[in-house]
Design a protein around this nucleic acid. Structure first.
Lengths: 165, 165
DNA sequence: GCTATTTAATACATAAATATACTATAGCCG
DNA sequence: CGGCTATAGTATATTTATGTATTAAATAGC
């Protein structure tokens, strides 16, 4: 039984009371919200044994996925979808754990370069098996072509936001 | 240009460093995260003129979408995807604004029934035009059949979580 | 019909996220 | 140059969310 059924019932009632309410759009938005919550919660649980939370993990993975020296705090904010002010706190935490390090930028003294330390890299390699298993499990209900189609449609959905921004 | 391209580049690098990393699953998860952020931020901006934030709006809409008397705090938590402890604070705020009210439940004196006040109903009717416009705009990039297909796939995606929970 | 366990709701302490304001550097243009 | 504006990063205060413990009432098992 789907956890989403009650939501659909509510949308039906809403539409009855306010006929202009766009059911389809609202369903999509609420599905995204529900999915995000599930993904976030499960990731947090999987990361807890490694002493990380989901935002911290995301930052580490952004650095892991970057060729070259590293990223500035503002690039990292953009990459991870965090507000700039949040990056300071999160990177402080990661620095204190010795997982990343700050270095002054060569060409612009306002900038910093954040990069993984060997310890940070080692932690990532240690936790990736768990994360890969979790990701595989989370999408196991979707056949490969469905995953591809879902990816295509989500990208198109996201493009709509970019276009208006 | 898509805001998602940098993410895809990073996933490619990640996969090179750690070949077992499931690219497809990770893309879906990150797309959900990006979309959630956009939806949430735009909703907050649209609601600000009405003195509400997104969680508060969600609670009101859950009540608006419910036939009958109202909901208990715990039902509301489930419906809105909020933790129970959060509901107390959020409903306090809405009570203070006079938008909802608490009543003792008839059949179980541990329970409360939360319901919209006339003022709450009036506020909803007043803000729905803005919200409907926003929802329509957010999904305008998707043709109707694409929306339907996306809805189907997202539900299937979500079902996978329910099944394992 | 009494105790033992569950459940509903909340209070309180803690943690996380956000908005705002501030410092330092860079780049521009007269 | 010298002053103006824009940008990078962070510190601080405030708001928002979460985890844990507490209170009260209902249910279950004897």
């Amino acid at each position: 039984m789907s956890s989403f059924l009650p939501t659909e019932k509510r949308l039906a009632v809403t539409r009855r009371r306010h006929p202009a309410f766009p059911r389809g759009s609202a369903v999509l938005v609420r599905l995204v919200k529900h999915l995000h919550k599930r993904v976030h919660d499960e990731a947090n649980a999987a990361l807890k044994p490694f002493g990380l939370n989901h935002p911290q993990y995301n930052l580490l993975m952004m650095l892991y996925g970057t060729d070259g020296d590293g990223l500035n705090p503002s690039q990292l904010a953009e990459a991870a979808g965090e507000k700039a002010a949040n990056i300071t706190r999160l990177t402080n935490e990661l620095c204190e754990k010795g997982l990343i390090e700050r270095a002054a930028s060569e060409d612009d003294r306002r900038k910093l370069v954040l990069s993984l330390t060997p310890a940070g890299l080692a932690l990532i390699e240690r936790l990736l098996p768990s994360i890969c298993a979790l990701l595989d499990e989370q999408t196991r209900g979707l056949a490969a072509p469905e995953q591809a189609e879902l990816e295509r449609l989500l990208k198109k959905f996201l493009d709509g936001f970019d276009r208006r921004a």
